[in-house]
């Protein structure tokens, strides 16, 4: 009797896999697509990644242990996107192992202590320039910034989605914003 009882508790809400999928995954397809777009850089690839990620989510739907469904789906999208990039564009991808090296190795732009805020300059940028500046961020910084400043996830969700501790989310976000501001200032 015990053989199937354990994982089946996911079904205790009386829903089958398809119903769970509709409830957990389908509401977040827009976010999934936007993240995939920011990670792959184009629409067709983003659609493929989201479709693949959705299938993976469906197969793992019983393993969803509650919490933020959005963060759970986005972590699958993210992993799918990086797998896809490694396979198709191995030269452009930053692997997990490289992440910490990136953070240490790349010098931070000057934070211009003491200068007046250049908010007017920042505000001049158009959508295309802004997109390009975000796209130019290294992947760990870009995904963190996108999840926070575009998708509006809280730090805890970002930590779940990107599979790093909250402290790392905080430092990546601060660095991402600082880099972005520096790029904008250079182009402005």
């Amino acid at each position: 009797m015990q053989l199937f009882a354990s994982r089946a508790h996911g079904s205790m809400d009386g829903l089958d896999d398809n119903a769970r999928f509709r409830r957990i995954v389908m509401p977040h397809i827009d976010e999934a697509y936007r993240l995939a777009h920011w990670l792959t850089g184009n629409r067709a690839d983003a659609e493929d990644v989201v479709q693949d990620a959705s299938l993976r989510a469906f197969r793992a739907i019983q393993a969803f242990a509650g919490g933020s469904a959005r963060a759970w789906l986005l972590s699958i999208v993210r992993n799918t996107a990086y797998t896809w990039l490694r396979k198709n564009r191995s030269n452009t991808v930053v692997t997990v192992e490289d992440l910490e090296a990136v953070e240490v190795a790349q010098a931070e732009p000057s934070d211009s202590h003491g200068e007046t805020p250049e908010t007017a300059l920042i505000a001049k940028l158009d959508a295309e320039q802004l997109s390009a500046a975000i796209a130019a961020l290294p992947a760990p910084f870009r995904e963190t910034l996108v999840l926070r400043d575009i998708e509006g996830l809280d730090y805890r969700e970002i930590a779940e989605a990107t599979e790093v501790p909250i402290g790392t989310v905080m430092s990546r976000l601060a660095r991402a914003r600082r880099r972005l501001i520096a790029t904008i200032r250079k182009n402005g």
Partner: peptide, 20 residues
Amino acid sequence: ERIKALQQLIHERLPRQGAP
């Protein structure tokens, strides 16, 4: 102030688009 300006800019310039 710079961070707030950046957030404002992202909010205004990059509307979130839905999946195709």
